[in-house]
Protein backbone atom coordinates (compact mmCIF):
# COMPACT_ATOMS: atom_id res chain seq x y z
CA UNK A 1 0.00 0.00 0.00
CA UNK A 2 2.80 2.38 0.92
CA UNK A 3 4.87 1.33 -2.12
CA UNK A 4 2.04 2.04 -4.54
CA UNK A 5 1.55 5.57 -3.19
CA UNK A 6 5.26 6.17 -3.42
CA UNK A 7 5.35 5.12 -7.08
CA UNK A 8 2.47 7.41 -7.92
CA UNK A 9 4.12 10.39 -6.25
CA UNK A 10 7.45 9.73 -7.86
CA UNK A 11 6.11 9.55 -11.40
CA UNK A 12 8.36 11.80 -13.61
CA UNK A 13 5.34 13.32 -15.35
CA UNK A 14 4.19 14.91 -12.10
CA UNK A 15 7.48 16.54 -11.38
CA UNK A 16 7.18 19.34 -14.01
CA UNK A 17 8.16 19.94 -17.60
CA UNK A 18 10.87 17.85 -19.12
CA UNK A 19 13.61 19.31 -21.24
CA UNK A 20 12.13 17.98 -24.46
CA UNK A 21 8.76 19.57 -23.66
CA UNK A 22 10.33 22.96 -23.05
CA UNK A 23 12.35 22.69 -26.27
CA UNK A 24 9.32 21.68 -28.33
CA UNK A 25 7.18 24.47 -26.89
CA UNK A 26 9.88 27.05 -27.60
CA UNK A 27 10.22 25.75 -31.15
CA UNK A 28 6.46 25.95 -31.69
CA UNK A 29 6.47 29.49 -30.29
CA UNK A 30 9.26 30.51 -32.65
CA UNK A 31 7.47 29.03 -35.65
CA UNK A 32 4.31 30.91 -34.66
CA UNK A 33 6.17 34.20 -34.32
CA UNK A 34 7.95 33.75 -37.64
CA UNK A 35 4.60 33.05 -39.35
CA UNK A 36 3.10 36.11 -37.65
CA UNK A 37 5.91 38.33 -38.84
CA UNK A 38 5.49 37.00 -42.38
CA UNK A 39 1.79 37.73 -42.23
CA UNK A 40 2.50 41.25 -41.02
CA UNK A 41 4.95 41.88 -43.84
CA UNK A 42 2.39 40.66 -46.41
CA UNK A 43 -0.36 42.83 -44.92
CA UNK A 44 1.97 45.82 -44.84
CA UNK A 45 2.86 45.43 -48.52
CA UNK A 46 -0.79 45.08 -49.45
CA UNK A 47 -1.60 48.19 -47.45
CA UNK A 48 1.17 50.17 -49.15
CA UNK A 49 -0.27 49.31 -52.55
CA UNK A 50 -3.70 50.46 -51.34
CA UNK A 51 -2.25 53.69 -49.94
CA UNK A 52 -0.77 54.53 -53.33
CA UNK A 53 -4.31 55.15 -54.55
CA UNK A 54 -4.52 58.07 -52.13
CA UNK A 55 -1.10 59.76 -52.17
CA UNK A 56 -0.38 61.99 -49.22
CA UNK A 57 -0.36 65.78 -49.72
CA UNK A 58 -0.88 65.37 -53.47
CA UNK A 59 -4.03 66.94 -54.92
CA UNK A 60 -6.58 64.46 -56.19
CA UNK A 61 -9.19 65.84 -58.55
CA UNK A 62 -12.86 64.95 -58.73
CA UNK A 63 -13.28 65.17 -62.49
CA UNK A 64 -16.94 65.35 -63.30
CA UNK A 65 -18.84 65.74 -66.47
CA UNK A 66 -20.07 69.20 -67.32
CA UNK A 67 -23.24 67.84 -68.89
CA UNK A 68 -26.28 68.99 -66.90
CA UNK A 69 -28.05 65.81 -67.98
CA UNK A 70 -25.46 63.60 -66.29
CA UNK A 71 -25.39 65.84 -63.24
CA UNK A 72 -29.14 65.47 -63.05
CA UNK A 73 -28.74 61.70 -63.16
CA UNK A 74 -26.12 61.90 -60.42
CA UNK A 75 -23.23 60.30 -62.30
CA UNK A 76 -20.28 59.96 -59.95
CA UNK A 77 -17.13 62.00 -60.54
CA UNK A 78 -13.89 60.23 -61.40
CA UNK A 79 -11.01 60.57 -58.97
CA UNK A 80 -7.75 61.32 -60.74
CA UNK A 81 -4.36 62.75 -59.86
CA UNK A 82 -4.35 64.73 -63.08
CA UNK A 83 -6.35 67.93 -63.41
CA UNK A 84 -6.23 67.71 -67.20
CA UNK A 85 -8.00 64.39 -67.18
CA UNK A 86 -11.44 65.93 -67.47
CA UNK A 87 -14.20 63.72 -68.74
CA UNK A 88 -15.39 65.03 -72.07
CA UNK A 89 -19.04 65.20 -72.91
CA UNK A 90 -19.09 62.71 -75.78
CA UNK A 91 -22.21 60.84 -74.78
CA UNK A 92 -25.15 60.91 -77.14
CA UNK A 93 -28.49 61.20 -75.49
CA UNK A 94 -30.97 58.81 -76.99
CA UNK A 95 -34.70 58.74 -76.78
CA UNK A 96 -35.47 55.14 -77.58
CA UNK A 97 -33.44 51.99 -78.03
CA UNK A 98 -34.87 49.11 -80.02
CA UNK A 99 -33.24 45.69 -80.22
CA UNK A 100 -33.09 44.36 -83.77
CA UNK A 101 -31.34 41.04 -83.34
CA UNK A 102 -29.72 39.06 -80.57
CA UNK A 103 -27.41 36.06 -80.80
CA UNK A 104 -25.53 34.11 -78.21
CA UNK A 105 -22.64 31.82 -79.10
CA UNK A 106 -22.07 29.60 -76.10
CA UNK A 107 -18.99 27.90 -77.51
CA UNK A 108 -17.22 31.15 -78.23
CA UNK A 109 -18.67 32.84 -75.16
CA UNK A 110 -19.86 35.81 -77.16
CA UNK A 111 -23.08 37.78 -77.14
CA UNK A 112 -23.88 40.05 -80.07
CA UNK A 113 -26.84 42.30 -80.58
CA UNK A 114 -27.95 44.96 -83.00
CA UNK A 115 -29.87 47.95 -81.72
CA UNK A 116 -31.23 51.10 -83.23
CA UNK A 117 -31.20 54.31 -81.22
CA UNK A 118 -33.32 57.33 -81.83
CA UNK A 119 -31.98 60.72 -80.88
CA UNK A 120 -34.25 63.05 -78.97
CA UNK A 121 -35.67 66.04 -80.80
CA UNK A 122 -33.50 69.17 -80.48
Amino acid sequence: MTDTRKQTRLCPADSGFTLIEVTVSLTVLMIFLVCLSGLTVTASRLLESMEQRYPENTPLYFNSNSSPWERNLGVSAILSSNAEDVVTDTNVLVRTIQMVSFSHDRNAGEISMDVTATEPPP
Binding site: M50, F62, S64
Partner: peptide, 17 residues
Protein backbone atom coordinates in the same frame (compact mmCIF):
# COMPACT_ATOMS: atom_id res chain seq x y z
CA UNK B 1 -7.44 53.73 -46.00
CA UNK B 2 -10.79 51.96 -45.64
CA UNK B 3 -12.49 55.11 -44.40
CA UNK B 4 -10.71 57.18 -47.03
CA UNK B 5 -12.10 54.93 -49.75
CA UNK B 6 -15.64 55.26 -48.47
CA UNK B 7 -15.34 59.00 -47.94
CA UNK B 8 -13.87 59.45 -51.43
CA UNK B 9 -16.69 57.51 -53.05
CA UNK B 10 -19.26 59.65 -51.24
CA UNK B 11 -17.51 62.88 -52.22
CA UNK B 12 -17.10 61.71 -55.83
CA UNK B 13 -20.78 60.86 -55.99
CA UNK B 14 -21.75 64.27 -54.64
CA UNK B 15 -19.27 66.27 -56.72
CA UNK B 16 -20.45 64.43 -59.82
CA UNK B 17 -23.97 65.70 -59.21
Amino acid sequence: VRETGFMTSMLASDFGA
